[in-house]
Computed example of a mutant assay.
Amino acid sequence: MFNSVSSLESFPQLWLQIALIGVCLGVIVLLAEGLHRYTSTDPERVRKVVHIGTGNVILLAWWLNIPAWVGITASILASSVALLSYKFPILPGINSVGRKSWGTFCYALSIGILVAWFWSINQPQYAALGILVMTWGDGLAALIGQKFGKHPYQFGGSKKSWEGSFTMFLVSYAVSSLILLGVHGNIWQSWAVPLAVALAATALEAFSWYGIDNLTVPVGSAAIAFFLTGLLLT
């Protein structure tokens, strides 16, 4: 299901694949900026378009077997742009100037960390798992919580809703299960490990001061899935 294609044999083909990923990311960013500039779409929803859209590119990178240096370089560039955007009006629809959150920076940083870690040991599925748990779990939890969250709670200084946290748990479990089922097949570990991942991801998402969950959720989810799967399959 999630098998990657064979490694590229020619340099031009590699750059064609990199260009394909670049085009996908560019379209998502331009769409978000268009929504911000020319529509009355809520700024938080615009950010979630980018949050969810860009995260899914990890599946394309996995399938195409893109080299790790590409993902790491992209992470460094995106992190640099994110840091600059806190000072200058770079892509304001994605990260408003003065917004008290390191979420965009942490997002880019987490992708670089996970690609560097799991591409180097030929286990890209765990990088994809961590990023997609953040992409879909955190993204949908925020949207559902804002629209349907009728039962708020406060965890330290972070305000959440039970509806949003329940969404985070369900989506994290679904994402983790699909990836582990695709890689390991229909074995009990593919159903049990996602429970631990979903619980941890939901707890980490509750600690979301200044957007730090965009780093802790993907890295924590991937690490738990990796170590538990390795432990239970040996």
Rank of each mutant, 00 (worst) to 15 (best):
E44R: 10
E44D: 12
E44Q: 06
R45Y: 13
R45V: 10
R45C: 11
V46T: 00
R47V: 01
V49C: 08
V49D: 00
V50E: 01
H51Q: 09
I52R: 04
G53C: 06
N56T: 14
V57L: 15
I58A: 13
L59H: 09
L60N: 01
W63N: 13
W63G: 00
L64R: 01
L64I: 03
P67C: 00
W69N: 02
V70Y: 13
I72D: 08
S79F: 09
S80P: 00
S80E: 01
V81E: 05
A82H: 04
L83A: 02
L84D: 00
Y86K: 15
F88I: 13
I90E: 00
I90Y: 08
I90T: 08
I90C: 09
L91T: 03
L91C: 06
P92D: 10
G93M: 03
N95H: 13
S96C: 13
S96M: 14
G98W: 01
R99N: 08
K100V: 02
K100A: 05
G103I: 03
F105A: 04
F105P: 10
F105Y: 13
C106G: 04
C106F: 15
C106V: 12
Y107N: 04
L109G: 06
S110C: 02
S110P: 09
G112M: 06
L114W: 03
L114F: 11
V115G: 08
A116T: 14
F118Q: 02
W119V: 05
I121T: 09
Q123H: 11
Q123S: 13
A128K: 07
G130P: 02
G130Q: 10
G130M: 07
L132Q: 05
V133T: 09
M134L: 12
W136I: 06
W136M: 10
G139H: 03
L140Q: 09
A141F: 07
A141G: 01
A141M: 07
A142P: 05
I144K: 10
G145A: 00
Q146L: 15
Q146W: 14
F148G: 05
K150F: 10
K150Y: 10
K159P: 05
K159L: 15
K159C: 11
K159D: 05
K160M: 09
S161G: 06
E163S: 00
G164E: 08
G164Q: 09
F166I: 15
F166K: 14
